[in-house]
Amino acid sequence: MADVHDNGFRPGRTLRLRVEFTRQLRRRRTQLAAVVLLVLPVVIALAFRVSSQPGASGGGARPGGGSGSALVTLATTGATNFALFTEFASAGFLLVVIVALFCGDTVASEASWSSLRYLLAIPVPRSRLLRQKLTVGLTLSVGANVLLPAWSFLVGGAFFGWAPGRSPLGGTFTSGVALQRLMVVVAYASLQSLVVAALAFLLSVVTDAPLGAVGGATMLVVVSNILDSITALDPYRQYLPTHFQYSWLDALGPTIVWDDMMRGTGVALVYAAVFFAVAWWRFQRKDIVS
């Protein structure tokens, strides 16, 4: 094989995933993100426990009327509903920031430490460098997206019991169905965060400032959410990257309605493909001077 060199160098073996995982997992920010994800559900559970002490209704109220989110009223029903609530509460911003951190910081931080040029001088082929970095970044992102609801499920179970999940639209799920729905929710939420991941990654390649990449991707979500709230933009709103962000709520009804989740997935994939393509194109041609 032509790619083996006499000094034992093989481009296909550079920067293996295990190595990149070690590099990322030993970073303080990775550990901090994990701690936040582990502590948050406990804090939320404690808050619910404290606030629902007097006359805890146990989620007897029916949704639809009254104020507040239907998921909030049901949050203390049991493990499944608690997990759904934390997912709903975190999907808008916390998970966005964490995904932006994992995917936006990865190349830019190497540039800021000047270690990027030494990786490229090994040489790790540029396309491979991006691929390995992205794989690790996305794996960590999915990990965060799975860890939060999974851990919330356990915390919710410990605090509020293992009662079957209740739909915000009324009715209960058996444990099997509830778990299935939870998996749909997590899968869809993870797919939606692909847009943020892709933009963060692109910015990470373009800029040498890790904060710029993370902040830029977070800003996209904020701006997109603001534009999404302007109904006058209507036929175009649905093309905003965050328009279908919460479409996983359609998986909580008596039957799963896939329409918007299909649309949301399509939008996310198109945006992600464009951002990734630009990232690759740019990095192949980029002069590394940092």
Binding site: P11, W113, S115, A121, P125, S127
Partner: peptide, 23 residues
């Protein structure tokens, strides 16, 4: 050129160190 395998025969120190501060 970028990623040319022959670069593996070079050890380099260019424009200051590039180390991972957390290790």
């Amino acid at each position: 050129e970028a990623g040319a395998p022959v670069l593996s025969r070079i050890g380099s120190f260019i424009e200051g160190p590039g180390l991972l501060p957390h290790l």
